[in-house]
Design a binder for these strands. Structure first.
Lengths: 109, 109
DNA sequence: GATATTGTTTGTAATTTTGCGAACAACTAA
DNA sequence: TTAGTTGTTCGCAAAATTACAAACAATATC
């Protein structure tokens, strides 16, 4: 894989994480999950002013993006942060923003 | 403003930044702008495999989100990173990801 | 003034996202 | 076996996103 391909791959991945985080409700869900050791669907639904079908949809997107994971604990469903990918996202955003140094990216005004 | 309102405000802001970054082309544009001191619309368009109208559209979104800024330098248009908001976004993402510590957010498997 | 260059805006089409209620599936408890 | 609880999936509608070509605006140059 060339360096350019690798860069493109990272751009795709970063965009994927960013897209998943690109909705206030999903940020709220992530924040809620990050605050506690654990929680069930019902608790998440309880703190959000939207229909359960919509909550379920947002959870699915976060799961597909890899930021959270779910587990059935019948008859409930338990959700939590996917720590491995959380760290990966954290590192990627951090690296992305830190690439701007010194005089770079500075031409206007 | 209550603490909760403030938190909600930050969630909105963070989601806004994330949404702007939620497309591979826009990540590519930001990366391109961050790599150099300066650049014109034409140079950005040149490195992307999409129509100029689409490039212009993506630039508008990044500008509306506050991540970049543009300036007319007739007959060209100069774009660059908005450093102030770049730092704000950087800090917000960093803070967001760092809220997950210890045993928090860790219940599955 | 006429023409060329540079980007933006407009109009349009296809796709995706968001949100909801209702139906459904899976498991528990009576 | 029959209810009850918990979430997901389906079907639908409205809105937003993505992308392009064509038209347009603004400035520079001949």
């Amino acid at each position: 894989m060339t360096e350019k391909d690798h860069k493109n791959g990272n751009q795709e991945k970063l965009a994927r994480f960013a897209k998943a985080m690109g909705h206030p409700t999903r940020i709220a869900i992530l924040q809620f999950l990050a605050e506690q050791k654990c929680c069930f669907f019902g608790e998440i639904h309880e703190v959000l002013p939207i229909a359960k079908a919509t909550v379920s949809q947002h959870l699915k997107e976060l799961k597909d993006a890899g930021l959270i994971q779910g587990e059935i604990e019948a008859p409930k469903v338990k959700y939590c942060i996917n720590k491995e990918n959380w760290k990966m996202a954290s590192d990627m955003f951090s690296g992305f923003f830190s690439q701007l140094t010194g005089e770079k990216g500075n031409c206007c005004e």
